[in-house]
Design a protein around this nucleic acid. Structure first.
Lengths: 328, 328
DNA sequence: GCTAGCACTACTATTATACGAGTGCTAATT
DNA sequence: AATTAGCACTCGTATAATAGTAGTGCTAGC
């Protein structure tokens, strides 16, 4: 267990280091704490013993370790309320009645990304949670038409398909069959249902059924698994710990591959979760802070992704504000 | 005018430098050319005089200047035919009958980006060239519905809008009015036409017309000006001339801002165009190679973006192959 | 338990030095 | 007249030596 003073020292080091990413020495801390640098050094070495601080080399100041940040976030960080300026900028987005919820979310995440210089992410609901609501077909020209798929949660996707020697009649018949038979099915089960329930039937009633079946099958099997929106990826290029091209490349590749982000959102209570360094699964220098949100039939995950050396208090306050505002 | 041998020297230097980005010395060239290094040095200094070569410092090998690349592209480069391997990989995409044209284009550009480690871009037709074909409306829940806009070229866009106290009846009436009055209008003129032709009419026939009008107005004024698809932006992180974070940041910002890419496609004959270094308007170390394509009612621009030190012959061959295959 | 004091460590910046890949120029050769 | 051998010279890169400094750990005294 840490003494009261050790907590203070750790807190000061973390906050100092977050402001300015250079190892913090005992002298700096002794100025704000009412004691000598030697005393601080003793406390520091205790904190290092406990695994909360690290040295970059034998004789330089301390840097918080992953556990140090964790301790800070879990025990030391004071819930900060948002500054008036931050609040104001977000409010102008939220109070815009014109915008639909998903637009509000994306716009406000853009604002947050610009204010903080961190990357933000929205994950929508998965294709498992989206139920097929309606299919529309619009012919474009000879042999080519657009299939539009709408889900109950308002997710829309479309695909241009090519058909040879299939009359519009036949297409309409098929669409009607699908609309009658499998409305309400989770998107990720539609392909299977098409095969076992629709294929046998259109085989009887529709000419060119093979081609039509294949086309629709692809529309659904290509359906996005989860809507992912990453805003402000380039912000990483402004963070000093990512001055190395290799590191940037690795982080960008992970951010482009949404599957990794999915892992983030396993748990689904409503609290704000903080994944520090290696916990982020993105990079040891990256922290992910996320929360789930739910509003009517819309739900998903918001995340802010930045360096481990993140303004935790500010980001947590913003995410909390976001969630509260979305949920009403 | 350059002598025959000067051309050979320039060509060798450019090609050598493209393979391996270190300044090329006279000795290297003298090996392939049947003459001494001193002779090559004389030719080199003539080429430098002519502005086609540059030195990184007083005593190191030569590097092609922007004009050097230009000369190479315009006069020296031999039209290369694609290697069997490159061809094969692209053919498997083109021969996939399932895919629509736009899918084929994006997929093959992905393949090209992976083969070459350059970034690729497709620009679709602009909202000026797309004519409104149809509007569909799907109610999602109380007070919220999705508007889907389809253009004659198969471009689809949708927007979630919120309406208060507007019955579905009224919405349908409005949609019918729009579908009757302004089908066939270029997308970028729809907003204006809504105001002058539709607004006065729905004012008479539709309750809550103000709100409905505003919602539809926004759907069209937010319509994407031009479909832009940038594939493999991260490839820049693998190019040695972009090892500097500042440079990467500047290039990424330009690539994210499609308006700059539009400038590229002013001219519209069908030839392949090469914009080297400063001509690219992106970065002095960037080259853009592009061509327009047209196929049925689809048209647009393909571009490959990479370092100035690009495999010009290979990229030109690929773009040519792409265009030919798209156009039938 | 705290702190002053001091020896010690390792990073950073600066300078000196050697090395080498390349050049330009001149004079000799073809 | 064009080519080439030869040589002095230039400048970037790499290595080592040096000084300076911000920090440490430890000890002894308050």
């Amino acid at each position: 267990m840490l003494t009261d003073r050790q907590c203070k020292v750790l807190k000061l080091i973390v906050e100092k280091y977050i402001k300015d990413p250079v190892p913090v020495g005992s002298k700096t801390i002794s100025k704000t704490l009412k004691c000598s640098s030697a005393t601080v050094r003793n406390e520091m070495s205790a904190l290092e013993e406990a695994g909360l601080l690290e040295k970059t080399h034998t004789s330089s100041g301390r840097v918080p370790s992953e556990e140090g940040y964790r301790y800070y976030v879990d025990h030391l960080m004071e819930p900060k309320k948002m500054t008036g300026e931050d609040m104001l900028k977000l409010q102008t987005v939220f109070h815009n009645q014109q915008l639909s919820l998903s637009d509000v979310i994306v716009k406000s995440l853009q604002v947050i990304s610009d204010m903080t210089n961190y990357t933000t992410v929205v994950l929508g609901s998965t294709s498992h949670e989206n139920l097929l609501k309606q299919i529309e077909v619009v012919p474009i020209d000879e042999g080519s038409l657009i299939v539009i798929v709408i889900t109950d949660r308002g997710h829309v996707e479309h695909k241009n398909i090519r058909l040879q020697d299939v009359s519009l009649e036949e297409v309409k018949k098929t669409v009607n069959l699908i609309n009658n038979l499998i409305i309400g099915t989770p998107i990720d089960e539609v392909s299977a249902k098409l095969e076992y329930e629709v294929k046998p039937i259109i085989g009887k009633y529709v000419k060119q059924h093979e081609q039509l079946y294949n086309a629709f099958y692809h529309v659904f099997s290509d359906f996005t698994n989860q809507e992912v929106n990453v805003v402000g990826k380039n912000k990483f290029l402004q963070q000093p710990e990512f001055s190395n091209i290799e590191k940037i490349r690795s982080v960008f590749n992970k951010l482009d591959n949404p599957e990794l982000l999915h892992k983030i959102e396993k748990d689904d209570d409503n609290n704000i979760k903080v994944y520090i360094g290696s916990e982020s699964k993105i990079d040891d220098d990256v922290t992910v802070i996320k929360t789930r949100f739910k509003s009517g039939n819309q739900e998903g995950t918001l995340a802010i992704i930045g360096p481990k050396r993140m303004e935790y208090d500010r980001v947590v306050a913003m995410l909390e504000y976001m969630r509260e505002n979305i949920e009403r």
